[in-house]
């Protein structure tokens, strides 16, 4: 294996990692407020499909990303109203969102299925992009990768250091106490659900606009579920999600590369790798940090003021 092999491999990792990371960040915000969101797959599907409709009709990838984000947020409004205000079962509602997303996109996306659309070019930052190795890996990605890095940092900063982040975490850990302290528990949860919709929508739009520049029914292909696994691997921390996404993307992007050079490795094992890895990211933290359950204490629990004790 030549050094070019590794250079090409490393340079593609951000493209594999970005959608997983964006979706995982949205889910982290949502779950830190105490709401389990299993609807990522459906939200991403809506984001991917609506972005392609816009990109196909306007040839503006940036506008497409925005619309993808907004339309998935709109779907998240339904989920939010259901689970936050009407206290429906969070797990079942999430699964319903998956089905709803698949259904909506199958019907609404017909006209744009398999239509190539414009995406994002890899940037050329002059001399920065010329630096050996670093130039290709760090300074020659598409614009959304840099947006994604900014989003990770802002999300981390907002959750871990701001007053709003503190309230969000309080709502997820002990809603009764937060309520007593004057935090609007349901409102915070609702906003957190909307954030997960927006982030998942952006992740879906990334897949259709930046990664493949085409929309095909069912193209999310389980990435929403992998994002959910990443959240648990990251132990609900944004920066750990970044590390997890890179790890996962590294393994996932290695598979076709090894096949392309004809490396003599068991193909069935490689094809199973994403799933083996998903299992591994769930098991490893459980083994390594068994001292405490770090999931938000009120995760999955409805909050009713009259039940306060």
């Amino acid at each position: 294996m030549s050094s070019a092999f590794f250079l090409n491999w490393f340079a593609t990792i951000p493209d594999y990692a970005a959608p997983l990371l964006l979706a995982a960040l949205g889910l982290i915000i949502c779950e830190r407020s105490g709401v389990i969101n299993l609807g990522a797959e459906g939200l991403m599907a809506v984001g991917a499909m609506s972005a392609v409709i816009v990109s196909f009709n306007t040839s503006s990838p940036a506008l497409a990303m925005a619309v993808g984000t907004i339309s998935a947020t709109a779907l998240a409004v339904i989920f939010g109203i259901a689970v936050v205000y009407f206290k429906t079962n969070q797990v079942l509602s999430g699964l319903a969102i998956v089905a709803l997303g698949a259904g909506i996109t199958g019907v609404a996306g017909r006209a744009v299925a398999h239509q190539p659309v414009p995406g994002f070019e890899r940037l050329n930052m002059g001399f920065l992009s010329e630096i050996p190795w670093i130039g290709k890996i760090v300074f020659s990605q598409n614009i959304m990768i840099y947006v994604c890095i900014v989003i990770v940092i802002v999300t981390w900063w907002a959750i871990e250091t701001t007053r709003y982040g503190l309230k969000l975490r309080a709502v997820g850990e002990d809603p009764a106490t937060a309520d007593t302290a004057g935090v609007d528990v349901l409102f915070y949860r609702f906003i957190a659900v909307l954030c997960s919709g927006a982030f998942c929508g952006l992740a879906g739009a990334y897949l259709s606009i930046a990664s493949s520049q085409v929309w095909v029914e069912g193209m999310i292909a389980g990435r929403g579920w992998i994002a959910i696994a990443l959240v648990i691997f990251a132990r609900w921390r944004p920066l750990r999600a970044l590390a997890g996404a890179i790890l996962f993307a590294g393994a996932d992007s290695l598979i076709p590369r090894l096949q392309a050079i004809g490396a003599d490795i068991p193909v069935y094992l490689m094809l199973a790798l994403p799933y083996v890895l998903t299992l591994a990211v769930l098991i490893i933290p459980a083994v390594l940090f068994k001292r405490a359950d770090v999931s938000p204490s009120a995760l999955g629990l409805d909050y009713l003021r009259q039940d306060r004790h």
Binding site: Y16, S211, Q213, W215, V216, M219, A221, P256, A260
Partner: peptide, 17 residues
Amino acid sequence: WYDSVKEGQASEALLEQ
């Protein structure tokens, strides 16, 4: 049979080779 993202990414890997 239908993962457009993987189809593009695998093609890129082949082109790189």
